[in-house]
Simulated assay, not measured.
Amino acid sequence: MKTLWTALTEPNRLHIIELLRGGPLTVGEITDQLGLQQPQVSKHLKVLSEAGIVEVQPQANRRIYRLRREPFQELESWLYSFRHLWEERFDRLDNYLLEIQGTEQQTSNRIEENNV
């Protein structure tokens, strides 16, 4: 998981992942779309490949990169394990906001009563 996070935190690698969400691309296509130099893109793709995020398929003299599902499924499972915490906190926030609204409404009603 640490390798996955490390690979995802670099902005250019994240841009590459975003591009690959649309489907497989060659190094040249990624280079053109990101406006980076080919050696930079190749280095980023190597990191993504070593992290298991992308796979490469050689085709003649081109290398076609595509995303692998498994690392993202692992990430989704890990994030899902925190879902109950988020939901609990959002529920408490909802309750707090409702409480504040009720207090504000009571204050507003008192002010109206005093002005009548």
Rank of each mutant, 00 (worst) to 15 (best):
L8I: 04
T9V: 05
T9W: 02
E10R: 04
P11N: 03
P11C: 05
P11H: 01
P11A: 02
N12E: 08
L14R: 13
H15Y: 06
H15K: 15
I16D: 04
I16E: 05
I17A: 00
I17R: 00
I17K: 01
I17P: 00
R21E: 08
R21D: 03
G22L: 12
G23W: 07
P24F: 03
P24E: 12
P24A: 15
P24Q: 13
L25V: 04
L25T: 01
T26N: 04
T26M: 03
G28I: 05
E29T: 06
E29A: 10
T31W: 01
T31V: 14
D32R: 13
D32L: 11
Q33H: 11
Q33V: 06
Q33P: 05
Q33Y: 05
L34R: 03
L34I: 11
L34A: 02
L34V: 06
G35P: 13
L36V: 05
L36H: 15
Q37Y: 12
Q38D: 10
Q38F: 07
Q38P: 09
Q38L: 09
P39T: 05
P39E: 00
P39D: 03
P39F: 02
V41C: 07
S42I: 13
S42H: 11
K43F: 12
K43P: 01
K43W: 11
H44T: 02
L45M: 12
L45G: 07
L45K: 10
L45Q: 09
K46C: 02
K46R: 13
V47A: 07
V47P: 08
V47R: 08
L48T: 07
S49V: 04
S49K: 15
E50N: 13
E50L: 13
E50G: 05
A51F: 12
G52Q: 10
G52M: 06
G52R: 08
G52P: 11
I53D: 00
I53K: 00
V54S: 07
V54H: 03
V54L: 02
E55L: 10
E55A: 14
E55C: 09
V56A: 14
P58D: 11
P58K: 13
Q59K: 15
N61A: 10
N61D: 12
N61T: 12
N61P: 04
